[in-house]
Design a binder for these strands. Structure first.
Ligand SMILES: NC(=O)c1ccc[n+]([C@@H]2O[C@H](COP(=O)([O-])OP(=O)(O)OC[C@H]3O[C@@H](n4cnc5c(N)ncnc54)[C@H](O)[C@@H]3O)[C@@H](O)[C@H]2O)c1
Ligand SMILES: NC(=O)c1ccc[n+]([C@@H]2O[C@H](COP(=O)([O-])OP(=O)(O)OC[C@H]3O[C@@H](n4cnc5c(N)ncnc54)[C@H](O)[C@@H]3O)[C@@H](O)[C@H]2O)c1
Lengths: 206, 206
DNA sequence: GTATATAAGTTAAATTTATCACAAAAAAAT
DNA sequence: ATTTTTTTGTGATAAATTTAACTTATATAC
């Protein structure tokens, strides 16, 4: 109860808090405060406290937050106190980079399946994975009970691939193709698009 | 006058409008409406009209928006009615993918310079660019008057690289390393981080 | 030609989001 | 032991953002 009423904009900030806490931990810190954390990421202390207050009380007055405890709690809230297997569809340049990216592992994710529709790529070994035929996506994804996927195909095929992922039972899609995708209620979608970010910045340049 | 008072959250949506308009154009459409555009990207018609109203009047009652005209106008607003030369720092797996990405060109950007600090990479040809020594970043970037850069080095070196980019006169940085970076007032920074997006989504999964 | 439908731009209202300010608690200093 | 400082969690307030409603203009149907 109460989980659904947390504003999405608050949820969106939690991963950044988690990332920063982990970094503080790597730097040898054991505690921090809403102020200290906020300074790192340019977010007001009040906002951080307000955000966390949606989920419980994690700090101690006068002291602040025990970093390892807050990390644990945030990982639980974000459901990354487990490792999500992921499917990657499209092994071009970008898919290749992502398949080789080792950074997912310690943050709740791991690539498990890789698909492409190009016969010259299917069957080859990329980053330790055998590239599978995307025609068999539905059965293979279902069989492995994969719920999270990344799309790195050209934008012309992104919607079609998304549809098939949804049919396969995937509930969260990270789409790198520069196109908006329709998914049914209950399926999460997020976008990564450098051009969107670059154009956002050039607005402020002359 | 009045440019600075447009809320950033509005500015952030403009590139998405532009992307979608370009796609409609590729599909052979000549006009659209706030309603039609909004349906594509799940944004209310009222919001689109409100957003655009910050910059002028671009539509026609009863008809909607002439796509090619609105594209032109948005490109001008976002300062992408020109091509921005970009520097790319860090040519690992991800940098390799970005260097080879052809999608920037038609949207106001082009990779111009590539840097790395690894002697075995420096001097090699990647996607038609000779990888330059990142020790010489300052002078080379200044010489080419590059104002936009992408960081694809490991997170331990991202801040240091950002500092040097700023010193070189770069005014907009797209950072792929999973770490928050400090830049002086007047320098734009945006982040691309798949883990942040994935964790945002897994919150909603069980 | 008139009526109906479409759709922009805008003003006002509603909603959401962020900030402020303070009481309570703990820690540090005197 | 007492005072001062730090810091959380929160209720109240302020600010920002979105939605809805309305006016005006254009286009289409009859
Ligand atoms: N490379 C980048 O740095 C970069 C950056 C941002 C966005 N993107 C976007 O990411 C996507 C991929 O970029 P890329 O440079 O790797 O392109 P790419 O052409 O190198 O790779 C695309 C891959 O997808 C495969 N594919 C196409 N249709 C498919 C389908 N229906 N099912 C399975 N596989 C399919 C192709 O065989 C190919 O291997 C594009 O949409 C691009 O716009 C790329
Ligand atoms: N590969 C991905 O899919 C992916 C996805 C998301 C984020 N990232 C992030 O992007 C960054 C790069 O990832 P990657 O997989 O390409 O790593 P990588 O190790 O393959 O590449 C890093 C490159 O940066 C260079 N480098 C390091 N320090 C440098 C410096 N001071 N100056 C110039 N060059 C320097 C290295 O020589 C290397 O070539 C990392 O921060 C990673 O977390 C990568």
């Amino acid at each position: 109860m109460g989980k659904r009423i947390v504003p999405d904009i608050v949820v969106a900030r939690l991963p950044l808090y988690l990332q920063t806490l982990k970094q503080l931990q790597r730097e040898g810190e054991y505690t921090t405060s809403s102020n200290g954390l906020g300074k790192r990421i340019d977010i007001s202390a009040a906002q951080i406290r307000k955000d966390l207050s949606h989920f419980g009380e994690f700090g101690k007055q006068g002291t602040g937050y025990a970093i390892s405890y807050l990390i644990e709690q945030l990982e639980e809230i974000l459901n990354v106190n487990q490792v999500w297997d992921m499917a990657l569809v499209g092994v071009g340049f970008l898919g290749h980079a992502i398949a080789n990216f080792r950074g997912f592992n310690s943050h709740g994710f791991q690539v498990k399946l890789i698909f492409d529709n190009n016969p010259t790529v299917i069957g080859s070994n990329i980053a330790g994975f055998i590239v599978q035929d995307s025609n068999k996506m539905e059965e293979i994804i279902q069989e492995h009970n994969v719920k999270v996927a990344m799309i790195t195909v050209d934008s012309d095929h992104a919607q079609e691939v998304a549809d098939r992922l949804v049919k396969s039972g995937v509930k969260a899609i990270l789409n790198y193709a520069p196109v908006t995708i329709k998914v049914p209620e209950g399926v999460q979608i997020q976008y990564i698009d450098p051009i969107i970010e670059l154009q956002h910045m050039t607005y402020y340049l002359d």
